[in-house]
């Protein structure tokens, strides 16, 4: 199932919704969310925020940083495929 998600992402070369993945896998969407979390933990996917972390917007200084900027519109969370997953060190 997890491998299927990675295969779908690689073959689609674009954005896929959780609903579409759930339909393709014939799984519950909540289960697909769990699989995606597992892929994040495994380093195969990573969350992509809408803005640079730790950057403070210079326009008004009315907030603590871009995360809190009320002028930003909501954009759904996105999980990007990590093209070359980091190789975990193996003890030898």
């Amino acid at each position: 199932m997890i491998k299927q998600i990675l295969d779908i992402l690689r073959s689609r070369q674009g954005v896929v919704s959780v609903r579409e993945l759930a339909q393709a896998l014939q799984a519950q969407p909540s289960a697909v969310e769990g699989m995606l979390q597992e892929l994040v933990r495994m380093g195969k996917l990573r969350y992509e925020s809408g803005h640079a972390e730790g950057e403070t917007c210079v326009t008004c200084g009315g907030c603590e940083g871009t995360d809190d900027c009320p002028l930003l519109f909501f954009v759904p969370r996105r999980l990007q495929l990590v093209e070359e997953p980091p190789t975990k060190p193996t003890e030898s």
Partner: peptide, 11 residues
């Protein structure tokens, strides 16, 4: 080259 694909969580 093409961008990396991604999954979007739709609330």
């Amino acid at each position: 080259k093409e961008a990396a694909p991604f999954v979007m969580e739709l609330p």
